Computed example of a mutant assay.
Amino acid sequence: MSKPPLDTAASATASRSRSKRSGSQLTPEAIIEASLRIAARGSADAFTVRRLGEELGADPTAVYRHFRDKDELLLEVADRTLGEVLDSIPEGLNWQDRIRALADGSLAVALKYPAVASAMASRTTRRPNEFRVVELILGAVTEAGLSGTDAAVHYRMVGDSLLALVGQRAAYLLFSPEARAADESAWNREYRLVDPEAFPQITKAALELAGVSQDQVYDARVEALITAIERRAVELRGGA
């Protein structure tokens, strides 16, 4: 068998050397940044070692030198995205607007990194930025007039609701374009063709249902959370 040309062999050797060097020089920060880049491209497999190896130009198993497993990496990446949310919230807002800003930032970051938000809808990072989010929400409900169990319950109501809402929106982006198109056309197709005698309320509201946007629904749900906190605060003040 003939040998490859010298320049080809040298190129291959250099390429292998670069891969080895990048593998040995990886840092947790580099791996987190690579995961975020993959997630920002809308990929559902941002946390597979194969994809990370390709993104980093390194042996995929090098990831395990810095993270115990993919779940530990996910939690670190998710906490980083919470930092992005917090950075988007202006100073000096009242408690209602802090919750609105948190909701807006959470949705924006979830749509930017759908694989992260969808995976974290029912998880907790147990890391610094999550603690900051919890502190922000507790501060808001306390400023509203809640304390003790009421503050804890309403903090959970806000936190869990936002996780679920943005997780739902993020997961939707990971569906195929065909699946999303079929769902989005349902209000103008299947729902307009239902039997009006069997489904009179759907028939009556068909036009309005088709015109509702996801953002309108999201905003209404956030306002409902704020209203629930305000109502409970009024009750605790004796209905004044």
Rank of each mutant, 00 (worst) to 15 (best):
E178C: 02
G239C: 08
H66S: 10
G139E: 02
K204L: 15
R37T: 14
A206I: 02
A152F: 14
Y218K: 13
R180F: 04
T48V: 11
Q216M: 12
I99L: 15
A170I: 03
R18S: 03
R51Q: 14
E223D: 15
R51W: 05
R127A: 13
A40T: 09
S213M: 05
Y218W: 01
L36P: 01
D195K: 00
A40I: 03
Q168R: 00
L86H: 03
Q201C: 06
I31M: 02
E190K: 10
D104K: 09
L225D: 04
A240C: 04
V153H: 10
P200V: 12
A220D: 12
A58S: 09
L86R: 01
E178R: 07
R237T: 07
R21F: 11
T81L: 08
S35R: 07
R98N: 09
V49A: 13
R50W: 11
L74Q: 15
V222W: 00
T13G: 10
L207S: 09
A44E: 14
A103M: 05
Y155F: 15
A179V: 11
S24E: 15
L207W: 05
T61Q: 12
G23E: 03
R189G: 06
V134Q: 12
H154K: 07
D219C: 06
Y64N: 07
L209E: 03
A198Y: 11
D183N: 04
E230H: 05
I32F: 03
T125C: 14
G238A: 07
A115F: 02
S147E: 14
V158E: 04
P200F: 05
S35M: 07
L82M: 15
Y172S: 08
R41A: 15
A224S: 14
E130R: 11
I137K: 05
A101V: 06
K3P: 11
E135F: 12
T203Y: 11
E135A: 15
E29A: 15
D215M: 05
G105A: 01
D104Y: 00
R156K: 09
D150N: 11
L165W: 06
P114T: 05
T227G: 09
S161V: 06
T81C: 13
L165R: 07
T203M: 07
A186W: 00
A14Q: 10
K204F: 09
V49I: 14
S43Y: 06
R80N: 09
L165D: 08
S22H: 10
L36N: 05
S11E: 12
F199P: 00
D45M: 13
T8P: 01
G211L: 12
A34C: 05
T203C: 08
A115D: 13
V63A: 08
A140D: 07
A62K: 01
L93N: 03
V63I: 15
V153R: 08
P28L: 02
K204H: 10
T125A: 15
L225M: 10
V85A: 03
Q214M: 04
T142P: 04
F67P: 03
G148Q: 13
W187C: 08
